[in-house]
Amino acid sequence: MILFFISACINETVRYRRVDLTGTLSSEDMQSPMYVSAHHAWYDTDLLAHPAAMFDQEIFNPGDFSWTIDIPIPETFTEGLLIYVWQDTDNDEVFCGLNGDEEYSDMAYIDDETLFQINVQLTPQHACLAPEILYANFFE
């Protein structure tokens, strides 16, 4: 009875899928931080459909990394996972900022949505390519 009462008091439910992400962020520059972000590959439908929809980001050192991400499961359509990285070689916290270095990025695409353990190898090598451009490498 109490359980019924408590379970009835739900205003709304938000859902996630927890994935352990591991891998390597490779670079000749082993000092400068790596900005890693996680994106739905596709989000929403019809006029609102769009690729590379970011939902989380974190900063790591180059080398091996481990990151637990909670992938939102909204009511609307989503598909696939993109992991994007860029390296802040001039330490201005801006990717290819004004008067800064030419900086590099990379991206991985994971289309298997049943995985809970994901391993990615990322090597920033694309000059000044933002995620909204780089994603297209996987969707010709």
Binding site: C9, I10, N11, T13, V14, R15, R18, I73
Partner: peptide, 12 residues
């Protein structure tokens, strides 16, 4: 009034 925001996380 009281209510709950429920968060469900599906792990492995």
């Amino acid at each position: 009034s009281l209510g709950n925001l429920r968060t469900e996380i599906q792990t492995q």
